[in-house]
Design a protein around this nucleic acid. Structure first.
Lengths: 218, 218
DNA sequence: CCAGCAACATACCGACCAGTATGTACTCTG
DNA sequence: CAGAGTACATACTGGTCGGTATGTTGCTGG
């Protein structure tokens, strides 16, 4: 019955798989935190969702805070990279403004995403004032985000497709503020329509950043 | 010793003053909720800050939720009215764009305000998804806010000082999103400089809403 | 094949916390 | 000025939650 086990490296249903357990915990924790916030997230609920016991949790993480830190660094940060930095990196063939418009429009707009809001905003609102450890980790993500957008804008300025009168870092922060702001409005309304309206307005504003004159090639 | 008491209606140091007690509770509760969020706000902490006992609390409010609702309707809503609607109403002599710029610049920028963030955003992020009662109350405030700004923009369009190509409601929502978004960024940074930069950018954007042509009188 | 450590599992603890039961003192009305 | 109801005060409860102590089992190197 268990003869097929062997040591086939992958897919062998080992009963002990610490890395897998850790990932299950991170996954369950990020969901619970996303939904209820860090402070109100219950360890017991996380354990139940991950199908893991308390002993396993405290083997992998030394406290609830440590678990929260790992969620930020490994789940939230990755999410932000995948949605913004990677796409921006990959679309260096396109004009930066078009790339940014594409990225903004690609932000998930399913009801559950809109109703849950942006994980980054959720955690910032709850924790930045209360816990410096959380704040620093979140700030790194914001900074990378802003830097990524600013880099794209700078590239556009060099190639002449983006207005030269704007400061890339500040314009980047304004874009981020708009996105986060609309996430808040849409979360409050619990309505996808609000989010879609926000995207339209943001895209319109992004278009206004193009350098004047130079007609774009169709 | 207590002869001066009488029934002088006002300022008589009565030992029982239910309305005053209620206000003390609302005040203490709003501070505690502002700082820790609704769910993490402790009743005991609120009671201690208000110098009131639990019996008094449950005489005036039937539950923690009811207290939260009252905070939103009586404290947060009033704050928003005083900062946005009233100033916009009172400055009908000015051009709407100038009025809006004035209002935005008048938002408190003390360290404690920046570090605490916007009460409306705080509560929305925490509660809109979890409790429909909270959500509806917060939505009313957002709606009044947006309507107030939109009305100002419409007025500007009629008098010819605001661009006619923009939709007042949508532009209003974009302004609100920018303000809230920068509140989030500044709260994360815990830095007044971020907020001031945000205000500059928002003011710059507001200026771009002026109708072209017509030179403004100095 | 077995020793020993890694990777859990279970039971339990004290703190906290919203809410309540009940008692009491102030205040107003008649 | 008395009684009744308002406006509290105090003590207590049941439940939850993060954390821990301790036991147990799977796994791996020698």
């Amino acid at each position: 019955m268990l003869l097929a086990r062997k040591t086939l490296s992958r897919r062998a249903p080992r009963l002990r798989d610490p890395e897998r357990t850790r990932q299950r915990l991170l996954r369950a924790a990020s969901r619970e935190v996303y939904r209820y916030g860090f402070q109100s997230a219950g360890l017991d609920a996380i354990l139940a969702a991950a199908n893991v016991t308390k002993g396993a949790l405290y083997y992998h993480f030394e406290s609830k805070e440590a678990l929260g830190h790992a969620v930020i660094e490994e789940v939230v940060a990755k999410l932000q990279r995948d949605r913004w930095l990677v796409p921006l990196q990959r679309s260096k063939d396109k004009e930066p403004i078009d790339a940014l418009i594409g990225v903004v429009q690609a932000i998930p707009a399913r009801p559950k995403d809109v109703k849950g809001g942006c994980p980054l905003v959720n955690l910032t609102q709850e924790m930045s004032q209360l816990d410096e450890q959380f704040r620093k980790r979140l700030e790194r993500i914001f900074h990378a985000w802003q830097e990524g957008v600013a880099a794209a804008l700078r590239r556009g300025q060099h190639q002449g497709t983006v207005r030269r009168d704007l400061v890339p870092e500040e314009t980047a922060s304004l874009l981020i503020a708009m996105v986060e702001g609309y996430e808040v409005l849409a979360k409050n309304a619990q309505d996808v329509k609000v989010w879609n309206m926000g995207i339209r307005n943001i895209v319109g504003w992004l278009s206004s950043l193009r350098a004047p004159g130079k007609r774009r090639r169709s």
